[in-house]
């Protein structure tokens, strides 16, 4: 999938640029994107090191496993194939909590940690497991209680009521997450029928 999407975006982009005469913009964008990718990762390494250090402590102290047990009722529905006391569920719960609180910089490293733990249960390490797809969709759908970035933006723009969008955002993100989970479950079924 990614091979096709990647090639299509670049090939279509280049053909369109040739027709539009926008090759200069495209070559600037290519170089800027490469710099941007390193800048994003540099920014990510700090919080990631912090959370990986804390998660290591939390694992050794048994906190992650404890969180995993708390998460059990929901985990049974969302991640039926993962053993109920597996540390991956603890990391997933930490990631979801960070997302709900709007702590994006912390949610990403916790999510990566969870992916690593899900990978240890994966039969084919190059193919995403059902649990990985479910977890990914929950993250792409942006489940959050507090949309921190947009609240800061609205405060900065002088809104008279910056938090009035919290309710509407919660509704939209809940719809998005539920739709993503349902789509994911249906696509897993369709996929297993083909095999």
């Amino acid at each position: 999938m990614l091979n096709k999407i990647w090639f299509a975006m670049i090939a279509i982009g280049m053909v369109v640029a040739a027709v539009n005469g926008r090759m200069e913009e495209v070559s600037v964008a290519i170089l800027q994107s490469t710099e941007e990718s390193v800048r994003i990762v540099i920014k990510l390494i700090g919080p990631m090191s912090l959370w990986l250090g804390l998660m290591k402590l939390a694992e050794e102290a048994g906190i992650v496993q404890g969180l995993a047990r708390l998460f059990k009722p929901l985990a049974k529905v969302l991640f039926p194939k993962i053993p109920v006391d597996h540390p991956a569920l603890g990391s997933i719960m930490m990631n979801l909590s960070a997302n709900l609180l709007g702590l994006g910089n912390s949610a990403t490293p916790l999510g990566i940690k969870a992916m690593h733990q899900l990978q240890s249960l994966n039969k084919n390490s190059e193919t995403a497991s059902d649990a990985m797809c479910t977890f990914l969709v929950i993250n792409t759908s942006g489940l959050t209680l507090i949309p921190t970035t947009i609240l800061a933006l609205r405060v900065g723009a002088g809104s008279s009521n910056p938090t009035e969008i919290v309710g509407t955002t919660l509704f939209a993100t809940a719809c998005s997450t539920i739709a993503g989970i349902i789509a994911n479950k249906l696509l897993i079924k369709v996929g297993s029928l083909q095999i």
Partner: peptide, 8 residues
């Protein structure tokens, strides 16, 4: 970047 800047 290519996709956006080209106008596609």
């Amino acid at each position: 970047g290519v996709f956006r800047s080209s106008g596609a």
